[in-house]
Design a protein around this nucleic acid. Structure first.
Lengths: 149, 149
DNA sequence: CATTATTTATAGGCGAGGCTAAATATCAAT
DNA sequence: ATTGATATTTAGCCTCGCCTATAAATAATG
């Protein structure tokens, strides 16, 4: 309704210019969940290793301020991923825990794949942090097959 | 100053809980440039394949509305990546063209690597769209070595 | 138990990136 | 040349994620 009617030359040979629309939209949607994933993954780590997850620790690890964390935690609580007990730390709900574990798995697999491909460990860790959120289940499975081989 | 003083058990064995701070910050910084990269890459494709890049085409391909594109183009122009001639389309500056080519290269390499690892072409294309922006130069080089092998 | 230090909560602001709606400008075509 | 379609601009408005500054609540200590 908005494009094809008048435009003879715009046949646009579906070679390269294809409608990446899906991909772009997925990419944008990912951005919404990336942060949540980072948070629950970090919270899980903190609880496991330090026994508790406090706002200030989370803030420090993420490199943001505490009010920023507070606001985000409110959102995570609304989404039923965490519960908070004032001055006692943050806890993961079952759903939050599942998400944390899934995210951790992806993170580890991505990092391992990068290493296997010859990326140095530091770079692998850094890049994995950004990449992990964009790896679909199918790709993840391919990665795991590759690691087993 | 803010954490270690009081907390005997929080020795935090630097195993997993390490200060990913850099990685998170890089990840956040990436988000700022992602969109610009998507735009210039798309604009380059449109110019090559359709002869011109119009706001409406860009909007359609990205899956956003045209005013959104207009606003973004203004920003790209401020950053000297594009020039605009009203009702005649958008053009890349030298700098914009360089960025577009670099982005395209990364995109293609990532997609090729995914395919090589057994990801089906559709998924590879989709995931590459999200992943490409988080691939550092070092990782990119490792990818290229892997592809050559 | 009162004081200090730490942690959490709250208020208000900023920029980015979306959207819709409505005004303009250009192009095409009768 | 006027009219109708298409493209662009402009003007709000919204949500998110970040920030600083400040207040309030709790914990720890003398």
């Amino acid at each position: 309704m908005t494009k094809p009617p008048a435009a003879p030359e715009s046949r646009l040979a579906s070679t390269e210019v294809e409608t990446h629309v899906e991909a772009f939209q997925k990419s944008r949607d990912d951005r919404r969940t990336e942060l949540m994933e980072d948070y629950v993954e970090l919270i899980a780590d903190l609880i496991e290793h330090a026994g508790e997850a406090r706002q200030t620790d989370i803030a420090q690890r993420l490199g943001v301020t505490q009010p920023t964390v507070a606001k985000m935690l409110k959102r995570l609580a609304e989404e039923n991923l965490i519960t908070q007990r004032p001055y006692r730390g943050v806890f993961l709900t079952d759903e939050g825990h599942r998400l944390a574990m899934a995210t951790r798995r992806r993170h580890q697999v991505v990092e391992a794949v990068l290493c296997r491909l010859g990326v140095d460990p530091d770079t692998a860790r850094n890049d994995a942090e950004g990449i992990e959120h964009h790896v679909s289940e199918k790709t993840l499975e391919a990665f795991e097959r590759f690691l087993k081989a």
